Amino acid sequence: MLKPFIIITDSIMNTPHTSTKALFEIDNQIDILVKKIELLSYVNPTNIEAEKERFFASKYLTDPVFIYPEINFDRFNLHRELFSQPIEQIEDTEIRQLYQDIIYAYSGLIQCIETIGEGKKFYYNSLHSFGTPTEDDVENAKFILHFDDEDDKDEQFRPKYNELQTEQKFRDYSKRYDFTYTIKFSNTMSAIAMVLNNTKTLVINQNHTFSDNEIAVLTNHEIGVHMVTSMNGILHPLKIFSHGFPNYEETQEGLAVFSEYMSNSLTVRRLKELAYRVIAVDSLAKGYSFSKTFRLLHNQYDLERERAFYITVRAHRGGGFTKDYLYLTGLKKVYNYYKEGKDLKCLLTGKISLSYLTSIESLRKKGFTAPVKHITDSYLKNNNTNKTVDFILESLK
């Protein structure tokens, strides 16, 4: 369902127009500033495993006390530098508005980072940057949870690969793409793998033993989308495509989970994990403590305690991190986009948002983009054979 994606270019890069020169200077300066803002580098606690043991020993009653990495930049000065950008020199009204939105969005992320570990302060900043589930989102999650998981004894779910074997699996998969990236290991992360966009780094959780299904999910998700869009983003004249449009996270995570679907690695079990994340984030809006969210997942929804703990960590880290509900909402939006026969390739052009497609189209017509070089391998053909997954995605509101 991929259609030709034509990039319209002109001699704009060679045009010494004052407004164009200002645009590139502002874009470059913002890029320098936002490279310091990798939220996932700061919001993951460094003592997860120790606090897990303490929490379990307390019979799930004593909330963990998490420790976070030290912030290594001047937050106030970063705010000041962002808002001091002379965007009034950008004569194009549409582009000027886009960069206003960019500055506000990244200022919000700085506020998130500077309040990590400060309870409600962080939660409200997270709410401002990422939002919170709607009633429909929660109903979608509960709908998914009515379905039975695949058999846990299925060979594809059996844990078998350590971190070094997993690294090799990622390297083997990545041979299909014409780019390189760094792989690191961590024992202080709640996810089992993640991409750090600013440094083009894949981080693998060395405490986890990976299954074949997890390898399939993660290679398609982390490399096939997150790394692909990172590498495409740096090819554009404007660095906004690399550091990210406002609210790009929902589209990015939707694209990433959709690649799992297209590669036939998206399971009911995985969809239920995304649904549990929505339930956990919704519990923040209800004022639940860490222990109460955990007990909701473990006791009411009968989720195994290790999985319940890590999902609760993801939602409550920092003081209440609401981003996790966006995986399911993003998946539904990208799935609908695909079913409508629209061009998936244009969504891979960088860290973009569906809500800014009109702006991106305008940038293309004005010559501020580069061709899409890297294509998500799984998007070339729909290999999904799971009819239950199809039914669920069709039925979501």
Results as ranks from 00 to 15, higher is better:
Tyr301Glu: 04
Lys351Cys: 03
Ser265Gln: 05
Ala275His: 08
Arg295Ser: 06
Val268Thr: 01
Lys342Ala: 10
Asn382Ile: 08
Leu347Lys: 10
Leu271Gln: 01
Thr385Ser: 15
Cys346Ala: 07
Tyr276Cys: 04
Val281Trp: 03
Ile360Val: 14
Leu296Val: 08
Glu340Cys: 01
Phe309His: 02
Lys381Trp: 00
Leu331Arg: 04
Val389Tyr: 09
Lys381Thr: 04
Asp302Met: 12
Lys292His: 08
Tyr379Ile: 02
His316Met: 14
Leu344Asn: 10
Lys323Cys: 13
Thr322His: 09
Thr349His: 08
Leu274Cys: 08
Gly287His: 09
Leu326Gly: 03
Asn384Gly: 01
Val281Pro: 07
Phe294Lys: 08
Arg307Asn: 15
Lys373Asp: 11
Lys351Glu: 01
Val389Gln: 02
Val281Met: 10
Lys387Tyr: 02
Arg269Thr: 13
Ile375Thr: 15
Tyr310Asn: 05
His316Gly: 09
Leu396Pro: 01
Thr376Tyr: 07
Tyr288Ile: 06
Phe290Asp: 09
Leu344Phe: 06
Arg270Ala: 08
Thr329Val: 12
Gly318Glu: 07
Tyr356Cys: 06
Asn264Leu: 02
Arg314Phe: 09
Thr349Asp: 13
Ala308Asn: 14
Lys333Arg: 03
Val334Phe: 10
Pro371Arg: 02
Tyr310Leu: 07
Lys366Met: 09
Asn386Gln: 04
Tyr338Thr: 12
Lys373Ile: 07
Gly350Trp: 06
Lys272Glu: 05
Arg307Glu: 15
Lys387Trp: 00
Ser265Asp: 09
Ser291His: 13
His316Phe: 12
Tyr335Glu: 03
Tyr356Glu: 06
Arg305Glu: 15
Leu328Val: 00
Ser359Glu: 14
Gln300Phe: 14
Lys397Asn: 14
Leu363Phe: 01
Leu303Asn: 03
Gly319Arg: 09
Asp343Thr: 15
Asn386Leu: 00
Thr349Val: 13
Ser265Pro: 07
Lys323Arg: 15
Lys292Tyr: 02
Asn336Ser: 14
Val278Ser: 10
Ser283Asp: 13
Glu361Arg: 07
Arg314Asp: 11
Phe309Ile: 07
Asp324Ala: 04
Gly367Leu: 10
Gln300Arg: 11
Leu326Met: 14
Tyr301Ser: 04
Val334Pro: 11
Ser355Phe: 06
His298Cys: 03
Ser289Asp: 13
Asp302Glu: 14
His298Lys: 00
Leu328Lys: 01
Ser289Arg: 14
Leu357Arg: 11
Tyr301Trp: 11
Thr312Glu: 13
Ile375Lys: 06
Leu347Trp: 03
Leu331Met: 11
Gly341Ser: 06
Thr322Cys: 00
Gly367Arg: 11
Phe294Glu: 09
Leu326Ser: 05
Asp302Gly: 04
Val268Pro: 04
Phe321Gly: 04
Leu380Trp: 07
Cys346Pro: 05
Val268Ala: 00
Lys366Gln: 12
Asn386Asp: 13
Cys346Glu: 11
Lys365Ile: 05
Ala315Gly: 10
Ser362Leu: 15
Leu271Ser: 08
Lys333Asn: 00
Asn383Ser: 12
Ile352His: 11
Ser355Gln: 15
Val389Ser: 05
Leu328Met: 00
Gly330Met: 01
Tyr310Cys: 02
Leu393Trp: 09
Asp324Ile: 01
Lys365Gln: 09
Ser362Cys: 12
Val281Asn: 12
Val334Met: 11
Phe294Arg: 05
Leu344Ala: 10
Arg307Val: 14
